[in-house]
Simulated assay, not measured.
Amino acid sequence: MPLYEYQCKSCENRFEKRQKFSDPAETVCPSCGGEVEKLISQSGFALKGGGWYGDGYSSSNGKPTPPCQGGGGGCAGCPSAA
């Protein structure tokens, strides 16, 4: 279940609530009873190390990258093409 962070508009109390996606958002501060707003927090999800991301989608997947010719044409994502 995701962990959501809320902040009270009256007393500025910040609190977290573990809720299902289908649960309604909190509307009342547990400290003062004031109106709360849901905050956008940094996710706890990070891709680290090897695995499917490092092996399948990274440019460092062990296969050499061909050198850029810089002559224009087919290197749309290449810095030399700009």
Rank of each mutant, 00 (worst) to 15 (best):
I40S: 07
Y53E: 03
I40D: 05
E5R: 14
G70I: 13
E26T: 12
C32W: 11
G74D: 15
Q42W: 09
E12I: 02
E5K: 07
F45N: 09
I40M: 02
T27S: 02
A82S: 09
C75R: 04
S22T: 14
W52P: 09
E16N: 13
T65Q: 07
P24C: 00
S59W: 08
N61E: 00
P66T: 15
A25F: 14
A81P: 00
E35F: 05
G50S: 12
V28T: 15
G56D: 10
P2T: 15
P30I: 12
E12G: 01
G51K: 03
G51M: 08
K38W: 03
L47W: 14
N61M: 00
E5Y: 01
P66D: 14
P79I: 12
T65L: 07
Q69Y: 05
L47K: 04
D23S: 13
G49F: 00
P24A: 13
G70F: 11
G71A: 06
V36H: 06
G72T: 09
R14G: 01
K9E: 11
C78L: 06
F15T: 03
Y4Q: 10
F15P: 00
P30R: 07
S10L: 08
P64L: 14
C29D: 01
G71L: 11
E37H: 03
C32M: 06
Y4F: 15
T65G: 00
S58M: 04
Q7D: 03
A82K: 01
P67C: 01
K48F: 04
G33D: 14
L47G: 05
K9I: 08
G34M: 07
G56E: 04
V36S: 01
F21D: 10
C78N: 10
Q7S: 12
C75T: 03
C11M: 10
S41I: 14
A81M: 02
Q69V: 01
G51L: 11
K17C: 11
S59G: 00
T27E: 03
V28L: 08
A25M: 09
G44C: 03
E35N: 14
Q7N: 08
G49H: 05
E16F: 02
G74M: 05
S43T: 15
T65E: 07
K38L: 08
G71V: 07
S10G: 01
Q69L: 11
G51T: 10
G71S: 08
K63W: 07
